[in-house]
Design a protein around this nucleic acid. Structure first.
Length: 553
RNA sequence: CGCGGGAUAGAGCAGUGGCAGCUCGUCGGGCUCAUAACCCGGAGGUCGUUGGUUCGAAUCCAACUCCCGCUACCA
């Protein structure tokens, strides 16, 4: 009866810190989904890893006089720290730098080559004689051939918006050393995407449970027709092409990184001492979900499925619930302009759950959404603290004081109390259904309305007026409801749920209780009450926005 | 140019054919157990524009306006 759920999450590029956009787009929804399924008693494997290869890391390493490995190691460590502090519960977070991944990527490459899905061809590229390297499109600068704006990049003109071929630039020069690049022929391998066009289209059209935007976007690309893409590059940092005579070339990151989902799964299997166990999540009736941002859609709905079709014997994605983007104070996040709230910075100064709450309530599920410090404070102070935190606190303090720190023994439940407990069970069922379908915002809203319902119940019952048997029953009922809230909020707010678990006098982990109606032994000793969440001072808004604008480059 | 998303109360959003909803804010009241928190009630919207389909449209169709993003390694 238990289901097997594979969760792949976008691979962060190990060239910079994580910011709130990454979290809202991919990591938080993935983690909510994973925690929910684990609570349901399903088997979950959630993996990702640092993407270590590619030109930007090479250049950065050169600028800083380091080796690429040093750069990626720093950020990989930082990522691991962030997952821990934010509670992103990966079963395995590896890197594309492992020997296992190199071998698997090469094996994958060779398999597709043998099957004729990869072929050799020649292409013309720009080569910088001074840097002695081939230049990726965006490392060539020149004048736009369409609008004649100077200083545009080789991949796209920022002024007129046209996509460019760097060979068409007027007066091209190397962005690194300003030398005049020359055109050189280079032999590369191409992925025969065109061969999968029809099969992909039929498969995608059958995936009616996908989000509208993901489905439409993918179908459009497939209808326009796929072009074969080069999957090797003339660079030195990356996975070697496993073919004689190609020693100078590397596998292109977009081909290699997605294979990481499989290599991470195999590394996980080895780590649990059963090297075949990855198959549980990649074959048979296991379902795979890929949590990514919208920019990553083609890689997960077209390229990776095509690679899997070509390779054979592995499950295609069941769902790719891609999110839209998060903006910051109304403007797109921008690493280069330093317009971002960086995760390590946030986690140094604030708790994880308020952020998880905000981003869950405000998740860009169907359209772009905005993070602003004002809204963050409002959500924390006026919703999380006021409704849920305060409910918990008022119930716990009243009970603790009136019943000697123990769960009071209830009398017979009246209709009102039964109705409230009924609503708690309804909420469990509703949130279950919503989370199953990746409707995170609505799921959390539903949990919150149970907290409101419980506040209403307390007001009607007013157990503080006189402490008698009826108020014992009332508080018992209220304790039961907040114990259910602990479960309902656990996927979103794992740290607070665990804390509430402890405050209610339980040992062990929330996860052990499963997605089931709470039970509470009368007489159980409660922990001394303390607030579940802290209110945040209004000054934070001014301080943080000033900091943001000040850091803007 | 092409493609995608969006335009609904002061703010942020949900709602894909049947009397326009939610959270916050605001105004009034109640409560006093609780982190000035909680509960109740009110005010507030010609659902971007124009035209069409329909007994009936925020919801379907057409055209248009404005905003955001993407165009294949920024979630």
């Amino acid at each position: 009866m238990s289901e097997r759920i594979f969760i792949g999450v976008a691979w962060p590029y190990a060239n910079g810190s994580l910011h709130l956009g990454h979290i809202a787009g991919a990591y938080l929804p993935a983690d909510i989904f994973a925690r929910y399924h684990r609570l349901k008693g399903n088997e979950v494997l959630m993996v990702s890893g640092s993407d270590q290869h590619g030109t930007p890391i090479t250049l950065r390493a050169e600028q800083e006089g380091k080796k690429p490995q040093q750069i990626t190691a720093i950020y990989h460590e930082e990522f691991l720290g962030c997952w821990q502090k934010l509670g992103i519960s990966f079963d395995r977070f590896t890197t594309t730098g492992t020997q296992n991944h190199h071998q698997l990527a090469q094996h994958f490459f060779l398999t597709l080559l043998e099957k004729g899905y990869i072929y050799k061809d020649t292409m013309a590229l720009l080569y910088c004689p001074r840097c002695r390297r081939f230049l990726p499109d965006r490392y060539v600068e020149g004048t736009c051939p369409y609008c004649h704006s100077p200083g545009v990049r080789g991949d796209q003109c920022d002024v007129c918006g046209k996509p460019l071929n760097p060979l068409d630039l007027i007066d091209p020069h190397c962005r690194i050393c300003a030398a005049l690049p020359e055109v050189r022929e280079s032999e590369h391998f191409f992925l025969r995407l065109s061969a999968f066009n029809q099969e992909l289209l039929e498969w995608v059209k059958g995936n009616t449970h996908w989000k509208q935007n993901v489905l439409n976007f993918t179908i459009n690309l497939l209808t326009e027709g796929l072009k074969d893409r080069a999957i090797t590059r003339d660079i030195e940092w990356g996975i070697p092409v496993p073919v004689p005579g190609f020693d100078e070339k590397r596998i292109y990151v977009w081909f290699e990184a997605v294979i990481g989902y499989l290599s991470a799964s195999k590394e996980w299997a080895n780590s649990v001492g059963d090297e075949q166990r990855w198959r549980d999540f990649w074959q048979g009736d296991a379902r795979s979900y890929y949590f990514i941002g919208k920019d990553n859609i083609p890689f997960h709905t077209i390229i990776w499925p095509a690679m899997l079709m070509g390779y054979g014997g592995l499950n295609l994605p069941y769902d790719v619930p891609a999110n839209e983007f998060l903006t910051l104070e109304g403007r797109p996040l921008s690493t280069s302009r330093n317009w971002a709230v960086w995760l390590p910075d946030y986690l140094e100064r604030y708790d994880p759950d308020p952020l998880r709450y905000f981003l869950s309530a405000n998740m860009p599920e169907s359209g772009d959404t905005d993070f602003s410090w004002r809204e963050f404070l409002r959500r924390n102070n006026d919703e999380l603290v006021a409704t849920y935190g305060n409910l918990v606190h008022r119930v716990l303090t009243l009970t603790y004081r009136s019943f000697e720190g123990r769960v009071p023994p209830p009398g017979e439940l009246d209709e009102r109390s039964k109705a409230l407990l009924g609503k708690a069970e309804d909420a469990l069922a509703t949130v279950d259904g919503l989370l199953y379908r990746c409707r995170f915002r609505e799921a959390m809203r539903t949990a919150m309305s149970l907290a409101q319902e419980a506040n209403r119940y307390l007001d009607e019952k007013s157990p503080w007026k006189r402490m008698n048997e009826e108020s014992a029953t009332t508080l018992y009922t209220a304790l039961l409801v907040i114990s259910n809230l602990k479960t309902l909020f656990y996927p979103f707010l794992p740290f607070s749920s665990q804390k509430l678990h402890r405050l209610l006098g339980f040992e062990g982990q929330v996860e052990d209780g499963g997605w089931t109606p709470a039970e509470l032994p009368a007489g159980q000793r409660l922990a001394p009450p303390e607030p579940l969440f802290a209110k945040l001072e209004e000054e934070i808004e001014a301080r943080e926005t000033a900091k943001l604008r000040g850091s803007r480059g």
